[in-house]
């Protein structure tokens, strides 16, 4: 048994020749150890719910589950989701080799039970059994000027992915125009449509503008942000705070049982758009917001 008080500490160590084991550790950490900011936000909300409410009971179970998953090194949720890697790599790194190592790590992590076999052929219906396949795992990569290698991982469950949405503005049903109030209306609507189905309380990532792909991408990238960070854009920071408050007035509550805690946070980004299009993309992340970051500098690494 592990001591749950250690769970927030940054893992540090030296790189060995075989990086696959380290990548398996990254996956294990993502699957079994929820980020500190998410645990703290859940704990804070748990305390705010009425003691005898279903909301409180749900959050009690959620907190217990987080502890047991860490202690037993078992997946927090059985839906270990789509395995998504965001990579920033230095010029000298071979991206091809890195992807191969990460793919091998995904197979190994599946075998070890940190990931459920989740890659299903969309035509034959056959599960590949090891989480690899066309577009699986998902890689997004960019070269950067730093010497270090950064690999961020997100495990995005299917239930919450299904309740994500993309709204072209204007939206007649919601009377949502092409302005910031229109954006706010559709964010609120996405949370109402989701109810408890995305495993509330969720984290709402929003991409304002862009095209259908870049907007959705920006929405999902927001989920990598820590809950307590502040948007550098002052206007967006205001929108985030306001929408978090308003979403929590909806009364949907944990699991959709009713209560004060419907979202843990709203995170937004803006992209330029063509004059003809105005998309608002919403990505819903369940409370089990499994994300971790591995950084390798020289022969040292950190996972947090």
């Amino acid at each position: 048994m592990k001591d749950k008080n250690d769970r927030y500490s940054v893992i540090k160590g030296n790189i060995t020749e075989n990086r696959i084991e380290l990548f398996v550790e990254l996956i294990k950490q993502a699957s079994t150890n929820l980020p500190a900011d998410v645990v703290l936000a859940l704990e804070k909300q748990r305390a705010s719910e009425d003691e005898k409410s279903q909301a409180r009971r749900a959050l009690d179970v959620i907190m217990k589950n987080i502890d047991i998953a860490y202690e037993k090194e078992a997946p927090i949720c059985q839906d270990t989701g789509t395995v998504i890697f965001h990579i920033h790599y230095p010029e000298k790194e071979s991206l091809g080799l890195l992807k191969k190592e990460l793919r091998d790590a995904v197979k190994l992590a599946t075998k070890k039970g940190y990931l459920r076999p989740n890659a299903v052929d969309s035509i034959t219906g056959k599960n590949s059994g090891d989480n690899t396949g066309f577009g699986s795992p998902a890689f997004y990569s960019d070269v950067w000027e730093k010497d270090s290698l950064e690999i961020k991982i997100m495990l995005k469950g299917g239930g919450c992915e299904n309740v994500g949405a993309q709204y072209p503005l204007p939206d007649t049903r919601l009377d949502a125009g092409r302005d910031i109030n229109g954006v706010k209306k559709v964010i609120l609507d996405a949370v109402v449509r989701a109810q408890g189905k995305g495993c509330a309380p969720g984290i709402i990532g929003v991409g304002i503008g862009g095209d259908r792909v870049s907007g959705a991408m920006a929405a999902k990238e927001q989920i990598f942000r820590k809950l307590d960070d502040l948007n550098e854009d002052e206007k967006l920071a205001e929108v985030e705070a306001e929408m978090e408050k308003k979403c929590n007035e909806l009364g949907i509550g944990p699991m959709g049982f009713g209560g004060k805690t419907t979202v843990l946070g709203v995170k937004t980004a803006k992209l330029h758009r063509v004059p003809a299009s105005f998309f608002v993309s919403v990505s819903y992340m369940c409370w089990a917001a499994r994300r971790k970051k591995l950084e390798i500098t020289g022969n040292q690494y950190t996972i947090e």
Partner: peptide
């Protein structure tokens, strides 16, 4: 309880 997978 959705997500409470180990507990369950």
């Amino acid at each position: 309880i959705g997500g409470a997978a180990v507990y369950t």
